[in-house]
Write a protein that binds this DNA or RNA. Structure first.
Lengths: 341, 341
DNA sequence: TTGAAAGCGCTAACAA
DNA sequence: TTGTTAGCGCTTTCAA
């Protein structure tokens, strides 16, 4: 059906193609009489402008590619909708691309960007390895990342908005300390990864500042999985000198830890208090609901989109790096009064 | 950076643009020597083919638009990945479009499809109202829906793959009946909606077949929300003649019902058995884990993609309507042995 | 206010 | 195997 063009319309109404084109765009100059005629004719002929012809000529697609490593994770929803909102306001359309954390796909997306599938890209990735960073750097198109690159080359050609992970865990631990806890266990990840080190540092900083001595037996590596959280949680709470509170470096591990506590018949938060991280749906479903650190996904999306729009308008502007600070959403798992199993 | 074209490359290597174009496409005929030269030159010049030029000329984008009403719902993940897999195998790239259940956005997406942003569309929508169905019908592009249209006009121009909702609830109730339950409560939705009526019918069919009399006080409208499930669940289990099992028409309501049972100190499944629907993540997080009807999202995605690919290859083929039958994933909430609170 | 003409970068005949 | 040519449908000068 959509096979009519400005030419076929022009022929039908007896005007030139350029007049038709002008009439069709809201901004183009055209007499009211002709515009009305043209619009009606276009409609009756089922006219739809060709996106490729338009963007070939105008060098604009009005699309923004939004690359997500894992759609199966509600962590990214807020980011997507935060960004989409801003993008729409600026006349862009967000194309969500699922990269499944695969470098190959990520590189493919960069190629698509270079092929002008979109006018710019927001990319979320677990690890910005050298090949990816190089591809992004040399691609010559506006890109915004939502993580900081750990060992960046001397010059990065893209903007970044990120949230302080270290601070997030710090806040979680501080919250527990403020509740009077002094024996605080920590379930994190493999410290060979940057992200896991950042988080552990947040924990260490908080207990250090509170004058609490570090205890190796209070630290565990749960691998960011629910099972890992369960195993580590079980181990922590079966220590003879049991921690009275646990910080888990993500909600999945917090869930595992919660289950471990229940399995051992411990009341939460009365016997063990718990804080997770990411503020995902899980935290609202468990019983007790889990206090969690909110990583401000919506703000990240918002700001990423704004940075991108600015960059498209002004490709030569200085690189922006914006840091956000997390906050904590307090639920039943960490509050002394009114807890139940 | 990606500003080199086949012309600039042709000039540099001293060959014609068409030779360059042929060399660049893997299928094009070209001497090995020249191809090598061209490929190297293209790489050194940072060449990236223009997606819009290519698709303007070839009338193909190799994109498929995948419209989802609610990204904040893991129900659709399986569908997306199931479809993406098939699409990728066929050389297509899935563009995920978030319509947020808004008719306006859905119509916008149809317009984008008509503008050839993609070669076809898979659309998931809560309600295929007349304006939407009309737009899809007259758009002249390949479309696949994953729901059945309730009151279709005489002729539909798109393929459909859907899952029998009625059957899903039927299976859920049958499962409970097979466990020996005779007092089975039902938490559904507003029967003014098609989907809620379908589900209720599944429940009625199952108990009818089992010779169990219908009891109005065993049927509740939970509005498909967690809170609704809680209220209805609480009401059901406080009946003097308490049901020993509950079918909830989605997992959110099942969660609410589970919480209501716990709140009343009832053991699950010993005192009350429970089955939900949709097999979302929730079911694995609760304690006990909730038995749920799996709506075979991955298969739906798979088949939708296959139907679409076929339709693109052969636009004139007969309309296909494929019906899938749900199955049930049995977890702790409905099995007599080994249940705990 | 309208029209003519050129060209965005590619593909696809066809000819050499 | 390579080159020539003619568009795909639009936007964008420039001229009328």
């Amino acid at each position: 059906m959509p096979n009519s063009t400005i030419y076929s319309i022009a022929q039908k109404v007896g005007l030139s193609p350029s007049t038709v084109a002008r009439a069709l765009r809201s901004d183009g100059v055209c007499s009211e009489k002709n515009r009305k005629l043209i619009l009606e004719t276009a409609k009756s002929m089922g006219y739809a402008p060709s996106a490729s012809a338009r963007s070939l000529r105008s060098r604009k697609t009005h699309n923004i590619m939004f690359c997500i490593p894992d759609l199966y994770n509600d962590f990214y929803f807020g980011m997507i909708s935060g960004a989409a909102e801003v993008l729409e306001q600026n006349g862009y359309f967000a194309i969500v691309c699922h990269t499944a954390s695969s470098l190959k796909k990520e590189l493919m997306m960069i190629d698509n960007l270079r092929a002008r599938v979109g006018d710019g890209m927001i990319i979320v990735s677990f690890d910005f390895t050298k090949p990816l960073v190089d591809a992004m750097n040399s691609c010559g198109m506006p890109i915004v990342t939502t993580n900081i690159v750990e060992n960046p080359p001397e010059r990065l050609n893209f903007d970044t908005v990120y949230i302080e992970t270290t601070e997030g865990i710090y806040i979680a631990a501080r919250h527990l300390i403020a509740q009077g806890h002094e024996k605080i266990g920590y379930i994190g990840g493999d410290v060979r990864t940057y992200s896991a080190r950042q988080r552990l540092n947040g924990y260490l900083k908080a207990i250090g500042e509170a004058g609490i001595a570090r205890r190796e037996d209070y630290e565990a590596n749960g691998g960011f999985t629910r099972d890992g959280g369960f195993v580590c949680g079980a181990r922590l709470v079966s220590l003879s000198d049991r921690p009275t509170a646990i910080v888990a470096a993500n909600d999945l591990m917090a869930l595992g830890a919660l289950e471990a506590c229940k399995a051992q018949g411990l009341r939460m938060p009365a016997d063990v208090a718990l804080v997770g991280m990411d503020d995902t749906l899980i935290t609202r479903v468990t019983n007790p609901a889990i206090t969690s650190v909110r990583m401000r996904q919506d703000d990240i999306g918002h700001i990423a989109a704004e940075l991108l729009v600015q960059r498209i308008k002004n490709p030569d502007k200085e690189r922006s790096v914006i840091m956000l600070t997390p906050d904590i959403v307090i639920r039943e798992s960490s509050i002394m009064a009114g807890g139940n199993l």
